[in-house]
Write a protein that binds this DNA or RNA. Structure first.
Lengths: 334, 334
DNA sequence: TTGAAAGCGTTACCAC
DNA sequence: GTGGTAACGCTTTCAA
């Protein structure tokens, strides 16, 4: 087992100090060009490999930005992740991804793992965290961004939108088009905080409009997707006829409901309206296409990148709060 | 700006040596239980966060396993990633994710970035790589796993299935059910290697069965998804009537085609069969549900975890080749 | 059961 | 333009 080639070895071979090798390999112009060239060549020929870990350790700069997602298997979060990844790459930063699988108790452990890698910033999806997580993050002393939400009591910077307002847009639209008997299809209570906020927003908006109580349909623990929406409606059976609108926590759930309802022979939107959330691809391609809210997943990523850029340049010393908003998108299911 | 809490700080607070703290936090039984407990509590209350970088530096083990994916925004790859992440967490390993966005020329750069972090293993999705990438990976000297494919000339271990065989299952089925005029809907040539393999497999299987030449429909550069399938059919217009089966590169593309075809008023499968690939959720929930091939994304992840476990235990010194197979799943679109 | 010393490979800082 | 010294936070090793 051959031992690793270090800067010292290269330095010895060339006849300079390790310090000069370090500088030369970083293209420091204070090293003379001939020396630099000789060092580069020698390093190459000796099979020298730069040790990022040692550098990260010495400089206390990891080159990482940590990000948590409730789930990787969500097209919107994946889109935000992609935008973050591409944007931060330009700044020489690598994303370190942690997924909590929607389990609140896991977030603390996850954040701890990520912080242990000494990231230069921490991006959290959502604005609801355990007290332990909040303490951990606050004392970590690096820039924090919460995204996909507009928390009342943010930990640092915020880039998101109001889930409550977004959901109210949906209910307002349904009321305007004459719907009154609403059912909400989403995850079990407590599992998914953004889902819970949306649920409460529907209940509140319905009250505001003087509608009868909203029926809450439990599609199972988060993450809920197409099959859960479908199963929820199948379980309900013909009773679905009691409602004139199904308000779903997301587009995939809405599509599952749509599929189940169509199988029953009901007409959408004539017999029943269905709405989604998130402007997923399925909303556009479904037949009929689904009424939803566009939350601009990619744009959130871009905004976070821009914000972090400013933070690293010391151009943003006070916590920023960026509301990216969201837009109602009427489809053919309402 | 407060400076970081280290083991030394904790040690001082408790009145022991840093060494004892180090042992205690790793649950070393040689530290007495009362001491351990006190150290744990003090560490917690002081907001101590373990420094994995320092540990990685000292032990020369990064605790990372690097993995490349063509795209994060793909439910199957996301599922494999999740299985990998969960499985490796038990071994104290963290995943370092890199996404090539289906661009071959980006893979080399990506692999270089990942290797600089000194991962303990490298997992590549797919079996097609540039020569530069192959050289890079070979000389890195760590365990390599190629997954989602069965390459002829593997770089190390392999966990995958034959895309060609899988696609042949589809064509065989279509022929058996009387279809002869096939069109293939997939990404542009050259962009996505797995897609290209599937395309060639369809052409070859059609020849084998004596069918007329397969029409190749270009749905755009990879990644192709629902909207691309839909656009391809919309672009084709009524000419779609020339075919009696649309063989799609993936389930999302198949759903896009299904949606477009239904809008035209054609009946599926009576007028036209449609097949997908990958056993995505949409295949099951679509109406009618889509004929596809189940490739067991999660199982691939489990197998890779098991394989790496054996490799780390020195139980697998020769390159392993695990064919996880795949199963034909008949839906209602054929 | 606990502690002291040394060192992992790099770079900041200061000297020359 | 180049080099010497020290240190980043942890764990291996040996000693008590």
């Amino acid at each position: 087992m051959s031992t690793r080639v270090t800067m010292r070895d290269v330095a010895q071979a060339v006849g300079v100090s390790p310090m000069t090798v370090s500088r030369a390999l970083r293209d420091d112009p204070t090293v003379s060009e001939p020396t630099r060239e000789k060092i580069r060549q020698t390093a190459q020929s000796m099979g020298y490999v730069y040790d990022t870990t040692a550098r990260a350790f010495r400089t206390q700069k990891s080159g990482f930005v940590a990000v948590t997602l409730p789930s990787v298997n969500n097209a919107n979060f994946a889109e935000t992740f992609r935008a973050l990844s591409n944007g931060l790459e330009a700044a020489g930063l690598q994303l370190l991804l942690g997924s909590s699988n929607y389990r609140v108790e896991k977030e603390e452990q996850l954040v701890r793992q990520l912080l242990a890698r000494n990231p230069e910033a921490l991006i959290l999806t959502g604005g609801h965290h355990s007290q332990a997580t909040r303490d951990l993050v606050r004392s970590a002393g690096m820039p924090i961004v919460e995204m996909w939400d507009l928390p009342d009591d943010p930990l640092g910077h915020v880039v998101g939108f109001s889930n409550a307002n977004a959901m109210a847009l949906i209910v307002d639209h349904l009321v305007q088009t004459g719907r009154r008997k609403l059912a909400f299809v989403g995850a079990s209570k407590g599992a998914d905080m953004r889902g819970a906020v949306r649920r409460e927003a529907v209940i509140e908006a319905a009250q505001r409009h003087g509608l009868p109580p909203v029926k809450l349909m439990d599609a199972g623990p988060a993450p809920v997707s197409m099959r859960h929406g479908r199963a929820a409606i199948d379980h309900l059976g013909r009773d679905v006829g009691q409602f004139d609108a199904l308000v779903c926590v997301s587009d995939p759930v809405a599509f599952g409901c749509l599929s189940a309802v169509q199988r029953m022979g009901l007409r959408v939107p004539d017999d029943l309206a269905i709405t989604g959330f998130g402007h997923f691809e399925i909303a556009k391609v479904a037949n009929p296409c689904i009424t939803t809210v566009n939350v601009q997943a990619e744009h959130i990523g871009h905004e976070v990148v821009a914000l972090l850029g400013a933070v690293f340049d010391n151009a943003a010393d006070t916590p920023q709060r960026i509301d990216v908003g969201c837009t109602f998108v009427r489809g053919e299911t309402s």
